[in-house]
Nucleic acid binder design. Structure first.
Lengths: 114, 114
DNA sequence: TTTTTATATGCTAATATAGGAATATAGTAA
DNA sequence: TTACTATATTCCTATATTAGCATATAAAAA
């Protein structure tokens, strides 16, 4: 694989590496399509900030936009992106389970020390 | 979803948002398991830098390590991470196709202008 | 035309990240 | 013990990213 391809992969993941942008993807995945104003309202984040995050996602090729009158509607361009989250969720669940197991172990040790 | 969960998703994607770390994942996905020295040698990146990237991937829960004597072997903890790349590849291919279509269109316009 | 509405962009300060060089740690061997 | 090997960490500097505010653009309405 060429360095350019690695950069392209990295830029897609970088676009997804911000909690606000994850929220935007989740919102669009749920509602299908939304204008900037509704996204801003729904997430309670001011319009310029939402606009900037949307342009980052768009530049990465993850979402696309369509102008309709005054409004710009955004939607997910690559539906398989939802699978990212299913996998990421497995990682997160594994972490939570590991932390839980660890705290149980600590409780056991405390009992033994008594 | 709580803000903490969004942060966890974001940190997983952030861990993948660097070309060197993509290369490491690809390497581990292919070879199964590798020590730091072999990763460093294979990617021609110096050891402290590889070590830092590995710790970022490990903290995100994407890879795990096992110490064996002097060496530390790393392997992928979540096999589904490979699906990330399959999807990301679709995004990349779509971009490449779009660019190609655009350049064809420009050629058409140039012909008409003659 | 002017005004209003929806979105995008420019600027700045604070914060985060990267790589390189040097150093620290931990296990092995002599 | 000392020497060696494989990893990890620290410090430093350069660069990148963020949110917030102000401003610019673009379409619709008056």
């Amino acid at each position: 694989m060429s360095d350019e391809i690695y950069d392209m992969y990295a830029s897609i993941f970088k676009a997804l590496s911000h909690p606000t942008r994850i929220k935007i993807i989740e919102l669009l995945a749920t509602k299908g399509e939304m204008c900037v104003c509704n996204i801003s309202e729904n997430l309670k984040i001011d319009q310029p900030t939402v606009s900037k995050h949307l342009s980052i996602l768009k530049n990465a090729g993850i979402i696309e936009s369509k102008k309709e009158g005054l409004m710009v509607n955004y939607k997910i361009r690559m539906p398989c992106i939802v699978d990212f989250f299913r996998c990421a969720n497995q990682v997160i669940q594994a972490d939570i389970n590991a932390k839980f197991a660890l705290s149980l172990k600590k409780i056991e040790v405390m009992k033994e020390e008594k």
